[in-house]
Write a protein that binds this DNA or RNA. Structure first.
Length: 203
DNA sequence: AAGAAGATTAAA
DNA sequence: TTAATCTTCTTG
């Protein structure tokens, strides 16, 4: 069994971390059971200079405080009145950058995922979106600001993905961010069947 | 104090 | 295309 990635993995350039997370495995231990999936889609959020980032302009609120922690912590926020999004905080303390995990390929604990996501008709729909994967893995507001180098929530080595199998594109749903919306900060495993439905920013 | 928008999803 | 649903941030 692989070990959780060390904190040093996260305390690096955010775009690099976003790219290298493709193929890694996100694991949540629930009642002693592993619920996990291979990460197939991520987005980098580059802090104070990134209009699409919650911490743009060094904005510091109760919600964004997580991003100011040292790399290797979680940042989970509630959105649209019904969904959670899971991010890993990157870089050193006080540099508020993070990587949003947008999609997984279900790996372990698929039965548990089905019970947490009854609306998903196919296994494919269990974790192919940022809100969906949180629901499937049981990630919620209580999982904000956790250290990701230990249970119950961590990331470990998964599959080896070749560089030419990783696709880069603009981030989803950040049209309001002006020029930043065009930055190629979304990484996905090329042609993978589990990437999220939306494939480009709205016009 | 009130209103608008949001790193989404599912159903029509 | 839109409803669902609520937290966060701004005063649009």
């Amino acid at each position: 069994m692989p070990n959780p990635l060390p904190l040093s993995f996260y305390r690096r350039d955010t775009t690099t971390v976003a790219r290298e997370l493709i193929g890694k495995k996100l694991v949540h231990i629930v009642d002693g059971q592993r619920i996990s999936g291979i990460i197939v889609e991520t987005e980098a959020y580059l802090g104070i200079e990134d209009r699409a980032c919650h911490s743009f302009g060094n904005r510091r609120t109760e919600r964004t405080e997580s991003m100011y922690l040292e790399g290797g912590h979680s940042y989970v926020y509630f959105i649209y009145g019904m969904h959670f999004c899971f991010n890993v905080v990157t870089r050193e303390a006080k540099v508020p950058e993070a990587v949003l995990i947008r999609a997984l390929e279900p790996s372990e604990g698929i039965e548990v995922m089905r019970t947490k996501r009854k609306r998903a008709k196919r296994d494919l729909d269990l974790t192919n979106g940022p809100g969906k994967l949180c629901q499937a893995l049981g990630i919620n507001r209580h999982h904000d600001r956790l250290r990701l180098d230990q249970p119950p929530l961590f990331i470990e080595d998964g599959l080896l993905v070749k560089a030419d199998e990783i696709e880069t594109s603009p981030r989803i749903g950040v049209d309001y961010a002006g020029i930043c919306a065009l930055w190629p900060l979304r990484f996905s495993w090329r042609a993978h069947h589990s990437i999220s439905k939306k494939t480009r920013a709205r016009q």
